[in-house]
């Protein structure tokens, strides 16, 4: 209630200031676009409307996408594309030059492979944990409990925090004199250097990211749960279906499309993980939490020898993995649908 009324009064103040300005602006713009319309006809105005967005989109997303291939197929140290010699698939060969793909040390681009394995491990553990916890939370929030709205906001709140803030919060409670070590010593254990131990650092990276993102997926799953018509459950009850049967036969199949969306989104984002880990551990200790995107960033921008070809090649490989992983998920879902 209070929110609504305060919004309204806020609106009216803003409007009283903005109205005269927008009116003048409207009239000016109307003259300009009105004349333009006389010139090109009303139907063609659609192109005028779509143009600004398309222009920004084309220049800053579409064109760079195509240019990426140019970098991947050219070599040398030059940044300007016209100065880079064509080298064919050499960058790809270099990236995949390994004696054994299971051992990053045997690869020419060993850090790329470390990043790839770190990211792969992170993706598997994080996505499974994230989807599982989000699903449990959504099912519980879908029950008719007191304070549902409040709890929904509670789980959602960290989603709004920036990756830097999330990383700092966790760094702070995990530091040597931090909350966790205080609890540990209180229970009679020794203090742990959480972020300088490779296993612990990886563990906390997963926990932190699940903490930060779960509210988002919970919300989508909750919307999916609420879209299931209540009549279905009532009908099933009349037919004598048990609660467990109802869950298996109604909830699970009807939630599957939402679950698929959640899994695809979680996977895409997990593969691209960067800023949150970068601010948390900087990829350390050593390269224990270095992600694929951090590798691309480091090799293209942070290292003194800027290797743009390799960086672009690595990002194309990553994009390919993303597309393939998404297609596999969709395929699995289709097969499950058919079965």
């Amino acid at each position: 209630m209070t929110v609504k009324s305060s919004q309204k009064s806020g609106d009216s103040i803003v409007e009283s200031i903005l109205n005269p300005i927008t009116k003048t602006l409207t009239n000016i713009l109307d003259v300009i676009f009105g004349n333009l319309q006389k010139l090109i006809g009303p139907t063609n105005m659609a192109y005028v409307f779509v143009l600004p967005n398309l222009l920004i989109f084309g220049v800053f997303i579409l064109f760079p996408m195509l240019l990426n291939f140019w970098y991947a197929f050219t070599g040398g140290v030059e940044f300007q594309p016209q100065n880079r010699p064509y080298v064919g698939l050499k960058n790809f060969q270099q990236l995949f030059e390994c004696e054994s793909f299971l051992d990053p040390n045997s690869c020419r681009e060993d850090i790329f492979w470390r990043g790839a394995y770190n990211t792969a491990g992170y993706v598997v553990v994080q996505v499974v944990l994230l989807v599982a916890i989000s699903l449990i939370t959504a099912v519980i929030l879908n029950r008719d409990l007191r304070g549902r709205g409040f709890f929904r906001s509670v789980f959602f709140y960290p989603v709004l925090l920036s990756p830097i803030v999330v990383a700092l919060i966790w760094k702070w409670i995990l530091q040597e004199n931090g909350l966790f070590n205080g609890v540990l010593t209180g229970m009679g254990f020794d203090r742990v250097q959480f972020l300088t131990n490779a296993t612990w650092a990886r563990f906390w990276v997963v926990i932190m990211s699940v903490w930060a993102y779960m509210g988002f997926y919970t919300l989508i799953l909750l919307a999916g749960l609420q879209a299931i018509p209540a009549q279905l459950y009532e009908a099933a009850k009349i037919d004598g279906a048990s609660d467990w049967q109802q869950f298996r036969q109604i909830t699970v199949p009807l939630l599957r499309p939402t679950l698929l969306v959640v899994m695809v989104l979680a996977l895409i984002r997990a593969v691209q993980v960067f800023d949150i880990i970068f601010a948390f551990t900087r990829g350390g200790p050593g390269t224990a939490t270095l992600s694929l995107v951090q590798y691309i960033y480091e090799i293209g921008f942070a290292s003194p020898a800027r290797r743009f070809g390799i960086a672009s090649t690595a990002s194309i490989v990553m994009a390919l993995v993303l597309v393939i992983a998404t297609l596999i998920q969709l395929r699995i879902n289709r097969d499950a649908d058919a079965a």
């Binding site: 579409l62 064109f63 240019l67 990426n68 970098y71 960067f274 921008f301 990002s315 990553m318 994009a319």
Partner: peptide, 16 residues
């Protein structure tokens, strides 16, 4: 373009 994250086009977008 939702599928094309910034991280995939870091190098060329910097040039642009």
């Amino acid at each position: 373009a939702l599928m094309v994250p910034l991280s995939v086009i870091l190098v060329p977008v910097f040039l642009v």
